[in-house]
């Protein structure tokens, strides 16, 4: 299946994204999303912040990149490096 990492927001509010094919099972994906999804509400005083989403099967989930488990780090670092702007 294809997963897509997206970054939105910022002082110049642009969307950046990169996608990759993975052979993860549905259960693996669910476990990963449970681990990295953004549970706590963001500090309402932050301005010009960026936010990350992981899109799987058309559904985007807000995630915290700092929570990526070690075994997935390389994949997400690669995705981050490959992200391209979506033109406005």
């Amino acid at each position: 299946m294809k997963i897509k990492l997206q970054r939105v927001g910022g002082i110049l509010p642009m969307t950046k994204e990169a996608a990759i094919e993975v052979d993860w099972t549905d259960e693996e994906i669910k476990k990963l999303l449970d681990c990295i999804c953004l549970k706590e509400k963001k500090d309402s005083k932050i301005r010009d912040a960026t936010a990350h989403f992981l899109e799987v099967k058309g559904k985007a989930t807000p995630i915290d990149l700092k929570k990526i488990p070690l075994e997935y780090k390389a994949i997400f670092e690669g995705l981050e490096a490959d992200m391209k702007f979506v033109k406005s």
């Binding site: 910022g10 110049l12 005083k45 932050i46 301005r47 010009d48 912040a49 960026t50």
Partner: peptide
């Protein structure tokens, strides 16, 4: 590629 104010 960004700058932000974090509340402090």
């Amino acid at each position: 590629d960004n700058a932000f104010w974090d509340g402090r």
